[in-house]
Lab assay of single mutants.
Amino acid sequence: MFYPNSPQTSPQLTQIPYGQQYAMMQRQIQQPYHPFATTEPQARLYPYHYQGPIQQEQGGFITQQSTAASPQYVQMRVTPVDQSIMSGYPNQTANGSSSSSFNYNIHPQQQQQQQQQQQQLRHHAMPVGSVPLQDDRYRKQLIVNYLAPDVTSTDLHELFSRFGELDGARIIYDKQTNMSKGYGFVYFCHAEDAKEAVERMSGYEFHGKWLKVGYSTNPLNIVPSNSSPYVHAGSRGAAG
């Protein structure tokens, strides 16, 4: 039997160049792979992502010199942007860049009308829970959420009447099932009393439920100042 490094198959040491006398086997001759043993700084910083320098080929596509990437890492192929796409944008300079302001050559009167329309939209648009300043009635009506099913309009009136005089209180019921929808409205005579009720009743436990109280901004629920107070009856038909 002959071994790869046996004296019968191995040459004389004098015939082997210096430095390879003890590297006779194939696994010894093959050098191990060192990912950080390279002179390129990109490979030292990113050993798993770097795959060699990027070269520009004919046709405008950018390719990489090395083989496919590892399945664990996804390499994105980048193509140059066609400058003709950006030619339609206004205020574009000769080098292809555009300024931040756009001039669509709008007539001054049209621009003024658009600004007025935007101001009107901001004036009428009102986020949930906010209180408008032009109508004091919005500051007097509250919406009470997360009410228990057994709470009546009379219970709601008695709960909030300790903060001040009320114009009314009612629970909203479903017309088909005649069941409470879980929320109601309270109408105060003074805005200061309503503000105190919002601050003190939010998070209050009532009939096993934690109440959420806020201003009601729905104009359909506003009680006119010259109208008669609501009837605080315990029956659902009268309260709904």
Results as ranks from 00 to 15, higher is better:
39 T>H: 14
104 Y>W: 14
118 Q>N: 09
17 P>D: 10
143 I>S: 05
141 Q>K: 07
64 Q>R: 04
162 R>A: 11
95 N>P: 12
172 I>A: 00
178 N>W: 15
173 Y>N: 09
38 T>P: 02
198 V>C: 02
184 G>D: 14
120 Q>Y: 11
173 Y>P: 06
208 G>V: 03
51 Q>E: 11
190 H>D: 13
36 F>Q: 12
107 H>Y: 02
91 N>W: 11
168 G>L: 04
218 N>T: 01
127 P>H: 02
107 H>D: 02
90 P>M: 01
53 P>N: 09
10 S>F: 05
60 G>T: 09
91 N>D: 06
135 D>V: 07
222 I>P: 11
36 F>V: 02
194 A>L: 12
3 Y>K: 08
62 I>A: 02
206 F>P: 13
40 E>S: 02
75 Q>N: 14
170 R>C: 02
76 M>P: 07
2 F>K: 01
44 R>G: 10
70 S>V: 01
102 F>V: 12
37 A>T: 07
126 M>F: 01
103 N>W: 03
75 Q>W: 15
37 A>M: 07
81 V>L: 10
123 H>G: 07
11 P>F: 04
20 Q>H: 04
123 H>D: 06
30 Q>A: 15
159 L>I: 14
230 Y>E: 13
152 T>H: 04
111 Q>C: 01
114 Q>W: 05
129 G>A: 08
91 N>I: 13
225 S>E: 02
183 Y>T: 07
160 F>A: 01
210 W>T: 08
52 G>D: 03
88 G>C: 11
55 Q>T: 09
187 Y>I: 01
58 Q>N: 00
230 Y>V: 06
188 F>K: 01
136 D>P: 01
158 E>Q: 05
85 I>P: 03
169 A>E: 14
154 T>G: 12
177 T>V: 06
128 V>H: 09
42 Q>R: 04
203 G>N: 15
136 D>W: 00
56 Q>I: 10
130 S>R: 08
120 Q>P: 10
191 A>K: 10
74 V>R: 10
216 S>G: 05
111 Q>F: 15
150 D>H: 12
156 L>M: 02
159 L>V: 04
90 P>Y: 07
103 N>L: 03
224 P>G: 09
131 V>R: 03
142 L>F: 14
106 I>G: 10
51 Q>W: 13
83 Q>E: 01
8 Q>L: 10
35 P>R: 06
154 T>A: 08
211 L>W: 03
63 T>P: 07
32 P>R: 01
62 I>T: 01
215 Y>M: 02
216 S>L: 01
54 I>M: 15
94 A>C: 01
191 A>G: 08
178 N>S: 05
151 V>D: 04
224 P>W: 14
173 Y>M: 06
122 R>D: 03
157 H>L: 02
112 Q>C: 03
146 Y>W: 00
99 S>R: 05
90 P>I: 03
35 P>M: 14
212 K>D: 02
212 K>P: 14
159 L>A: 12
225 S>P: 05
124 H>D: 07
170 R>N: 01
19 G>C: 15
134 Q>T: 14
32 P>M: 02
233 A>K: 14
5 N>T: 07
16 I>W: 15
16 I>T: 02
107 H>Q: 05
179 M>P: 05
37 A>K: 00
138 Y>M: 03
188 F>M: 03
21 Q>A: 07
119 Q>R: 03
203 G>L: 05
204 Y>Q: 11
49 H>D: 12
136 D>T: 13
28 Q>H: 06
114 Q>H: 08
83 Q>P: 09
226 N>T: 12
183 Y>F: 00
117 Q>L: 10
163 F>M: 13
149 P>S: 04
230 Y>N: 01
22 Y>K: 05
86 M>Y: 03
185 F>Y: 03
46 Y>N: 05
231 V>H: 07
160 F>V: 04
204 Y>P: 04
138 Y>W: 00
151 V>A: 06
226 N>D: 01
189 C>L: 06
135 D>K: 00
21 Q>K: 00
158 E>M: 03
205 E>H: 09
214 G>P: 13
69 A>P: 05
26 Q>K: 08
120 Q>F: 07
74 V>D: 14
122 R>F: 13
145 N>D: 01
